[in-house]
Computed example of a mutant assay.
Amino acid sequence: MDDTAPILPPMPGQRLARGVGRLLRSMDHAVLLEFVPSRGLRVDVMSLGPKGEIWIVECKSSRADFTSDRKWQGYLDWCDRYFWAVDGEFPCELLPEETGLILADPYGAEISRMAPEARLAAARRSRLMRDFARCAALRLQGIADPDAVSAFS
Protein backbone atom coordinates (compact mmCIF):
# COMPACT_ATOMS: atom_id res chain seq x y z
CA MET A 1 0.00 0.00 0.00
CA ASP A 2 1.21 3.48 -0.87
CA ASP A 3 1.57 5.55 2.34
CA THR A 4 1.24 8.78 0.36
CA ALA A 5 -2.22 7.91 -1.01
CA PRO A 6 -4.97 10.09 0.45
CA ILE A 7 -7.36 8.45 2.88
CA LEU A 8 -10.87 9.00 1.53
CA PRO A 9 -14.08 8.63 3.46
CA PRO A 10 -15.71 5.25 2.75
CA MET A 11 -19.23 6.32 1.77
CA PRO A 12 -20.09 8.25 -1.44
CA GLY A 13 -22.01 10.95 0.44
CA GLN A 14 -19.09 11.44 2.83
CA ARG A 15 -16.78 11.85 -0.15
CA LEU A 16 -19.02 14.58 -1.53
CA ALA A 17 -19.13 16.24 1.90
CA ARG A 18 -15.33 16.32 1.95
CA GLY A 19 -15.21 18.19 -1.35
CA VAL A 20 -18.00 20.54 -0.23
CA GLY A 21 -16.10 21.24 2.97
CA ARG A 22 -13.05 22.22 0.98
CA LEU A 23 -15.10 24.59 -1.18
CA LEU A 24 -16.78 26.23 1.80
CA ARG A 25 -13.51 26.56 3.69
CA SER A 26 -12.03 28.33 0.64
CA MET A 27 -14.95 30.78 0.98
CA ASP A 28 -13.98 31.44 4.63
CA HIS A 29 -16.82 29.35 6.07
CA ALA A 30 -16.38 27.21 9.18
CA VAL A 31 -17.74 23.74 8.40
CA LEU A 32 -19.28 20.97 10.49
CA LEU A 33 -20.23 17.60 9.04
CA GLU A 34 -23.15 15.58 10.41
CA PHE A 35 -24.66 18.40 12.49
CA VAL A 36 -27.98 18.13 14.35
CA PRO A 37 -29.79 21.50 14.30
CA SER A 38 -32.90 20.07 15.95
CA ARG A 39 -34.13 16.73 17.25
CA GLY A 40 -34.88 14.40 14.34
CA LEU A 41 -32.76 16.33 11.84
CA ARG A 42 -29.16 15.63 10.87
CA VAL A 43 -27.64 17.61 8.06
CA ASP A 44 -24.66 16.43 6.05
CA VAL A 45 -22.86 19.79 6.04
CA MET A 46 -23.57 23.00 7.92
CA SER A 47 -21.38 26.04 7.54
CA LEU A 48 -21.05 29.35 9.28
CA GLY A 49 -19.89 32.13 6.97
CA PRO A 50 -17.74 35.13 7.83
CA LYS A 51 -20.79 37.39 8.23
CA GLY A 52 -22.73 34.89 10.34
CA GLU A 53 -24.64 33.34 7.44
CA ILE A 54 -25.67 29.72 7.90
CA TRP A 55 -25.73 27.32 4.98
CA ILE A 56 -26.89 23.70 4.86
CA VAL A 57 -25.70 21.29 2.17
CA GLU A 58 -27.23 17.86 1.69
CA CYS A 59 -25.03 15.41 -0.22
CA LYS A 60 -26.81 12.99 -2.54
CA SER A 61 -24.88 10.21 -4.19
CA SER A 62 -27.66 8.69 -6.29
CA ARG A 63 -31.26 8.99 -7.50
CA ALA A 64 -32.34 6.49 -4.81
CA ASP A 65 -30.55 8.50 -2.11
CA PHE A 66 -32.44 11.64 -3.17
CA THR A 67 -35.88 10.06 -3.60
CA SER A 68 -35.69 8.38 -0.19
CA ASP A 69 -34.97 11.71 1.57
CA ARG A 70 -38.26 12.78 3.15
CA LYS A 71 -36.88 15.34 5.61
CA TRP A 72 -35.04 17.86 3.47
CA GLN A 73 -37.78 20.50 3.50
CA GLY A 74 -37.53 20.57 7.29
CA TYR A 75 -33.93 21.76 6.93
CA LEU A 76 -35.02 24.98 5.22
CA ASP A 77 -36.08 26.48 8.56
CA TRP A 78 -32.54 26.07 9.90
CA CYS A 79 -30.43 27.94 7.34
CA ASP A 80 -30.10 31.10 5.28
CA ARG A 81 -29.27 29.11 2.13
CA TYR A 82 -29.92 25.46 1.25
CA PHE A 83 -27.90 23.46 -1.28
CA TRP A 84 -27.73 19.98 -2.74
CA ALA A 85 -24.29 18.56 -3.47
CA VAL A 86 -24.04 15.90 -6.16
CA ASP A 87 -21.42 14.46 -8.46
CA GLY A 88 -21.24 14.96 -12.21
CA GLU A 89 -23.22 11.79 -12.93
CA PHE A 90 -26.26 12.75 -10.83
CA PRO A 91 -29.48 13.58 -12.74
CA CYS A 92 -29.69 17.23 -11.62
CA GLU A 93 -33.16 17.70 -13.16
CA LEU A 94 -34.51 15.82 -10.11
CA LEU A 95 -33.43 18.59 -7.75
CA PRO A 96 -35.84 21.43 -6.94
CA GLU A 97 -34.89 24.60 -8.83
CA GLU A 98 -35.62 26.77 -5.79
CA THR A 99 -32.58 25.29 -4.03
CA GLY A 100 -28.86 25.69 -4.58
CA LEU A 101 -26.70 23.19 -6.43
CA ILE A 102 -23.09 22.26 -5.81
CA LEU A 103 -21.17 19.87 -8.06
CA ALA A 104 -18.62 18.00 -5.96
CA ASP A 105 -16.13 15.17 -5.77
CA PRO A 106 -13.84 14.14 -2.89
CA TYR A 107 -11.27 16.79 -3.79
CA GLY A 108 -13.34 19.93 -4.28
CA ALA A 109 -16.58 21.43 -5.44
CA GLU A 110 -18.12 24.38 -7.22
CA ILE A 111 -21.41 26.19 -6.88
CA SER A 112 -23.45 25.56 -10.00
CA ARG A 113 -26.58 27.39 -8.81
CA MET A 114 -26.59 29.78 -5.86
CA ALA A 115 -29.34 29.08 -3.36
CA PRO A 116 -31.84 31.85 -2.71
CA GLU A 117 -31.45 33.58 0.62
CA ALA A 118 -34.10 33.26 3.33
CA ARG A 119 -32.66 34.96 6.43
CA LEU A 120 -33.13 33.22 9.75
CA ALA A 121 -34.84 34.97 12.65
CA ALA A 122 -32.34 36.45 15.12
CA ALA A 123 -33.29 34.13 17.99
CA ARG A 124 -32.90 30.99 15.87
CA ARG A 125 -29.59 32.26 14.41
CA SER A 126 -28.28 32.92 17.92
CA ARG A 127 -29.25 29.43 19.10
CA LEU A 128 -27.75 27.77 16.01
CA MET A 129 -24.50 29.68 16.33
CA ARG A 130 -24.22 28.69 20.00
CA ASP A 131 -24.99 25.02 19.21
CA PHE A 132 -22.55 25.08 16.27
CA ALA A 133 -19.79 26.48 18.50
CA ARG A 134 -20.42 23.93 21.28
CA CYS A 135 -20.46 21.04 18.82
CA ALA A 136 -17.22 22.18 17.18
CA ALA A 137 -15.49 22.71 20.54
CA LEU A 138 -16.59 19.31 21.88
CA ARG A 139 -15.38 17.57 18.72
CA LEU A 140 -12.04 19.36 18.92
CA GLN A 141 -11.62 18.41 22.57
CA GLY A 142 -12.50 14.81 21.69
CA ILE A 143 -9.66 14.78 19.18
CA ALA A 144 -7.18 16.48 21.51
CA ASP A 145 -8.13 14.37 24.56
CA PRO A 146 -10.24 11.30 23.69
CA ASP A 147 -10.15 10.07 27.32
CA ALA A 148 -11.88 13.25 28.53
CA VAL A 149 -15.01 12.37 26.55
CA SER A 150 -15.48 9.00 28.27
CA ALA A 151 -14.48 10.36 31.70
CA PHE A 152 -17.47 12.75 31.77
CA SER A 153 -20.07 10.75 29.85
Rank of each mutant, 00 (worst) to 15 (best):
S62G: 11
C92E: 15
L94I: 12
V45I: 10
S62H: 03
P106G: 07
K51C: 11
L101Q: 00
D44P: 12
M46F: 13
Q73T: 09
E58N: 09
D77K: 03
I56A: 00
D28T: 10
F35L: 09
E97H: 15
S38C: 15
P91V: 06
F83A: 00
L101H: 01
Y107S: 14
E53C: 06
L94A: 04
Y107P: 09
L48G: 05
W72V: 07
F35T: 07
I56S: 03
T99Q: 02
D65E: 08
G49R: 00
Q73C: 10
V86W: 03
E110C: 12
D28G: 10
V36P: 12
P50W: 04
E98A: 07
D65R: 03
M46T: 08
D87F: 01
D77R: 02
C79F: 02
A104F: 06
C59P: 03
L41S: 01
A115P: 00
G49H: 06
G88V: 14
T99S: 01
W84H: 03
L32R: 02
L94N: 02
G88A: 09
D87T: 07
M46V: 12
P116V: 00
Q73S: 09
A85S: 07
C79Q: 00
R63G: 07
P96G: 11
G74T: 04
D69S: 04
L95S: 01
L33G: 08
L33H: 11
V43Q: 01
E97Q: 12
W78M: 02
R39I: 12
A115R: 00
I102M: 02
D87C: 07
D105L: 13
D105Q: 14
D105T: 14
E97M: 14
V86P: 05
E97C: 10
G88N: 14
R70V: 14
S47F: 12
P91C: 07
A109F: 09
S62N: 04
V45K: 01
H29A: 08
G40Q: 13
E58M: 11
S61P: 08
S68Y: 13
V43I: 14
W55Y: 11
D65L: 02
E110R: 15
M46Y: 11
C59R: 01
L48T: 14
E89N: 08
P106T: 13
T67F: 13
R70D: 09
L95F: 13
W78N: 06
E93H: 03
P106C: 14
K71D: 14
R63C: 11
K71R: 14
V43Y: 04
V43L: 15
R70H: 11
K51V: 13
I54Q: 03
S68Q: 15
E58P: 12
P91A: 02
V31P: 05
G49S: 00
D105C: 06
Y107G: 10
G88T: 13
L48C: 04
P116S: 01
Y82D: 07
W78Y: 13
L76S: 05
F35N: 04
Y107C: 11
V43W: 02
L103F: 11
D44K: 11
